[in-house]
Design a protein around this nucleic acid. Sequence first.
DNA 1: GGGGAGAGATGCCGC
DNA 2: GCGGCATTTCTCCCC
Lengths: 246, 246
Amino acid sequence: MEYLEKYPGLFEHALNKNESIILCCKCEVWYSGRAESYLGIGDRFLLIKADRSMIVHQPTGSNPINYMKQDTHYNLTYDGGVLFLNCRNLANKEFLDAKIEQIHFFESYKLEDRSNLQLSGNERDMADMLYNNPSLVEEGFKPLGREEHTKYGFIDLFGYDRNGNLTVVECKRYTGDFKAVSQLKRYVEKIKSSKGIQKVRGILACPRMSTNAKAMLEEYGFKFIAANPPKQKERFNADQKTLHHF
Amino acid sequence: MEYLEKYPGLFEHALNKNESIILCCKCEVWYSGRAESYLGIGDRFLLIKADRSMIVHQPTGSNPINYMKQDTHYNLTYDGGVLFLNCRNLANKEFLDAKIEQIHFFESYKLEDRSNLQLSGNERDMADMLYNNPSLVEEGFKPLGREEHTKYGFIDLFGYDRNGNLTVVECKRYTGDFKAVSQLKRYVEKIKSSKGIQKVRGILACPRMSTNAKAMLEEYGFKFIAANPPKQKERFNADQKTLHHF
DNA sequence: GGGGAGAGATGCCGC
DNA sequence: GCGGCATTTCTCCCC
């Protein structure tokens, strides 16, 4: 097991060069901070990034089983035939310790990446779509604004219906649930009391609704509109799309 | 660039042996599924796990920039001096393509891990703590149940106050916000109407509350109790604790 | 930095 | 599978 002795030096050297580190190893993990956790022995990936954040991944599942935020300090030491990885984030009062019994592989590299993700089909795009195509909301709907931080709350879309009633539209990209209806109710009530209007309409726009949430929506006198988040924005030009279908 | 030609074979071989794969490479990424995204050229980690899920990590940030769920099919091909990684999850109608221009390193290993995370200090532990120490809620509080899936909703903790009023306690491990108050309000109203009781009390137990949420809570006639999720469970014995402090 | 809300949320449990 | 909800949620944006 003497081979483990070389890793503290390699580790320190990689960190000093601002490289990201991948460690595949057999380890135990203790975490203490906002909560506390213990993970028994097993093989995992430890990934320490250039911003000094760390994630610990088991061989299944898409989420890390343990993690540390950026600007964490790391210390790898060899003692008694095993390695100890000590991670401290004093700003967040978080600590993680790993006892490493075997290293399957160790790699480090200084990654260069200046690109940001371009994403479409989110809730904002959905509100944009309804703003630009108000008849999808209702015949005669006249949009006034969208995605606005008003003193009544953060409202996705609002305007007047064909009868001149102030109408609040809440968009959800997923199944409408209790939380969505509660949120809409909160906005409507706040506008009512703030503006002194008796009638303010509420509309929930989402792909579908749960049965219970639908009942709650109707109890409040609100309306459900089936709508999906849009895709295929202009930024996806013909050249890029072909890659998905080659 | 001819060296890239060897990777399709290595990749296929690793997948067939059910190994997890780490690929550090310079690439572009396209995603299409629930939404659509494009990520320009840059160095990233691609991690494909034993359950055939994948995460793509940039050199900073603790969340993956792109990912695929488990049971995704992978195909790596060499064409015209570059590699194409084609990822398909037909069950979820999700697709991800990566154009790989350079490989900085490629590693694979069959990880063995049968351990599950033991976590303490979550919301359930908080409800347990108040259940076992009812005076922390209020003098004279008599708990009846906790974490119960009733037809009125999923209620953290409920019981009778010193005056015999039915009382619902909602626990939050973080700052109490609008959503928490709305949730409590929903439970209280549902119990009122279902049981035909005029008076049902609501208590929100959390470390602190946002100013606006506090006002909303008081408007509803509910009560705030400062409480934190508990730590240092019995499972953290003296031996284990020393690891955090050595 | 707090507050409010979305996320390609994910994961868990219960029905 | 859907539904309801927590998460060491995380991230973004605005005040």
